[in-house]
């Protein structure tokens, strides 16, 4: 049996083989137990330095990377660009090169530009982990969603998953579509026509009717309406959006009885998801958060734990 993650970086789900995804999920599963120990710390990555470089706001992702780094004994520092020299006009590459001069082993990057981590990977020595790049990919989110589904359903293969909401601005949706289809699940996408990016129907079928999307679903992934990225009028009002595309209890009942509701957070309660659904028995939203730490530990371990990754 091989460890099975042969890459130096984690830039996206799209270039990964199913076996690589499997390796990350299996490693995360083995590492989860560490979080339940009386002493939640193992010496695995002692002496490794990780820089968390966040060009966009984040609570969950950053906290979860930081906890994962601490649990594995890596030294980490987090840079939020809102309080850094980036405000003085330093370019991404200059910032990264200066950080690299301090010899980190890994840079975890969140950036508003699609492809920013790929750019760093070409110019930096460190291992690069994509923590969300523009509307492109958010690979660790897709991995933690998959880990949650696999834990609850015992498999990914053959699951029917509906992804509903702001597809246009969602890197989570893209990473999830790639991951789930690679692992044999069938995906249905649903959004208002104005929030369907061109070309996405090549990845998975699209419907404009949420009732149709959730019919018989094993899992429903809700996407946040990313109002901070919206420049035009994509829909009349939030109330109208909720009425047409919000996940309500009534709509959940169209799915399978044992349906799982996922949301990457932060939630707009009463917009894309009704409160009683977010807090209801189908919701695995908080399991997702716990699994987020395990998945990030797995990524750190797989990228920094060995020597022969190319």
């Amino acid at each position: 049996m091989t460890a099975g993650y042969p890459h130096r970086h984690l830039l996206g789900i799209e270039p990964l083989e199913p076996s690589h995804i499997q390796a990350v999920l299996d490693t995360a599963e083995a590492l989860r137990e560490v979080l339940d120990r009386p002493i939640k710390k193992v010496p695995a990555l002692r002496g490794k330095t990780v820089v968390n470089l966040f060009y966009e706001p984040s609570t969950r992702t950053r906290a979860s990377f930081e906890i994962a780094e601490k649990v594995l004994s890596a030294d980490s520092l987090s840079i939020a660009t809102s309080t850094s020299s980036v405000l003085k006009g330093e370019t991404l590459l200059d910032t990264a090169r200066n950080l690299e001069a301090m010899n980190p082993d890994m840079i975890v990057l969140r950036h508003s530009a699609s492809g920013a981590p790929h750019f760093l990977a070409r110019h930096c020595r460190s291992a690069i982990v994509n923590a969300g790049d523009g509307a492109h990919e958010h690979p660790t989110q897709a991995l933690l969603d998959a880990l949650t589904l696999r834990q609850k359903k015992g498999r990914l293969d053959g699951l029917r998953v509906a992804i509903v909401g702001d597809l246009m601005h969602s890197r989570v949706a893209r990473s999830n579509v790639w991951l789930l289809t690679k692992m044999g699940a069938s995906v249905v996408l649903c959004a208002p026509p104005t929030l369907v990016p061109p070309g996405i129907e090549a990845l998975a079928p699209v419907t404009y009717r949420i009732d149709e999307a959730v019919e018989g679903a094993d899992a429903i992934m809700m996407l946040r309406l990313q109002q901070e990225r919206m420049t035009g009028g994509y829909f009349p009002t939030l109330r109208e959006y909720h009425a047409r595309f919000g996940l309500t209890e009534e709509r959940v009942r169209r799915a399978r009885k044992d349906v799982l509701i996922l949301h990457p957070g932060p939630m707009n309660r009463g917009v894309e998801i009704a409160s009683e659904v977010a807090d209801g028995p189908w919701s695995v939203i908080l399991d997702q958060v716990t699994n987020g730490v395990a998945v990030r530990m797995a990524v750190l371990y797989l990228l920094l734990g060995g020597t022969e990754a190319d």
């Binding site: 091989t2 460890a3 299996d26 490693t27 083995a30 137990e33 734990g305 060995g306 022969e308």
Partner: peptide
């Protein structure tokens, strides 16, 4: 006991050893 995370040669061992978990 899966001692992988406590190995003194973890970062020089070659490809990452597969974790089986401690229980």
């Amino acid at each position: 006991l899966d001692i992988t995370l406590y190995r003194d040669d973890l970062t020089t061992v070659g490809p990452q050893p597969v974790l089986k978990g401690t229980d």
